[in-house]
């Protein structure tokens, strides 16, 4: 376990005292160095709570969590400071000599193919550009753990595809450990080495994805995994609620 980046032991998180079942119930999780993990779950399953704990935004009150020093988050909404130009947003919070910081920010923007917008105001960016800025802002910190909180959810379908392959490329170039929170089964299978499913505060699935990269939806075995994960989420292939039908 020497190469573990994240280790959670019996992590529990409650919001409303002890009467209500906890949002996260004794979660055990290890994420290894450079591993791409996707976390699936229905809305309200506690995905975001888990991500916030890993980001260090929520305190650990029950259980143990060991987190790396360098963490970065890309949120669903870009959360850029509208009063700072794009490259200043990327550079925000970096320490060091001014010229070096600028150079690092610009090179991160180059990686997300956004050099031409470096001096633009964030409110003039398109949705995809804003998310790429968010990605550059996370990458420039050279994180050991990169947390992606449904970063493609508010993008249109085409932009989402481009963003997904960009994330895959950047991950292969920099190899941070990634936790991608999503509710999109295909997205999880296109990107992750390992897919977790969270339901009622428990990790009910921990599926290793051994499909060759770059991933294709047409690849052999892709569909079987998709159906299996949908089943775990309680939805059948045609989108019907499997749990409701069973009852």
């Amino acid at each position: 376990m020497g190469d573990a980046v994240v280790t959670l032991r019996a992590l529990t998180r409650r919001f409303h005292g002890s009467a209500v079942p906890p949002v996260l119930d004794r979660i055990d999780l290890t994420i290894r160095k450079g591993e791409f993990v996707a976390l699936l779950g229905r809305s309200g399953s506690g995905k975001t709570t888990l991500l916030r704990t890993l980001a260090g935004l929520d305190p650990v009150t029950e259980g143990e969590a060991s987190l790396p020093e360098r963490r970065a988050v890309v949120f669903q909404e870009p959360r850029l400071m509208p009063w700072k130009r794009v490259w200043h947003n990327v550079a925000l919070g970096l320490r060091g000599e001014a010229g070096t910081i600028r150079e690092r920010a610009l090179s991160a923007l180059r990686e997300v193919e956004l050099s031409h917008r470096a001096t633009a105001w964030p409110l003039t960016l398109s949705g995809g550009e804003a998310q790429r800025t968010g990605l550059a802002r996370a990458l420039v910190r050279e994180p050991e753990l990169l947390l992606l909180d449904e970063p493609f959810a508010s993008l249109d379908a085409l932009t989402r595809l481009r963003m997904q392959s960009l994330v895959a490329e950047l991950w292969q170039a920099h190899r941070p450990a990634v936790l991608l929170v999503t509710h999109d089964v295909e997205e999880a299978l296109l990107l992750a080495d390992r897919v977790l499913v969270l339901a009622q505060g428990h990790l009910v699935e921990d599926l290793s994805v051994k499909l060759p990269r770059p991933r294709r939806r047409s690849a052999e075995g892709f569909d079987a995994l998709r159906v299996r994960l949908l089943g775990t989420l309680g939805v059948d292939e045609d989108g019907h609620d499997a749990t409701a039908r069973a009852a």
């Binding site: 980001a55 970065a72 988050v73 909404e77 959360r79 400071m81 970096l94 910190r141």
Partner: peptide, 23 residues
Amino acid sequence: KLLEAGRILGLDRAGQIRHIILP
């Protein structure tokens, strides 16, 4: 949400005031 983003980016209180709250 912006303050939270600032915290993750490693801004201390003074940095948050200068880069987020005042602007």
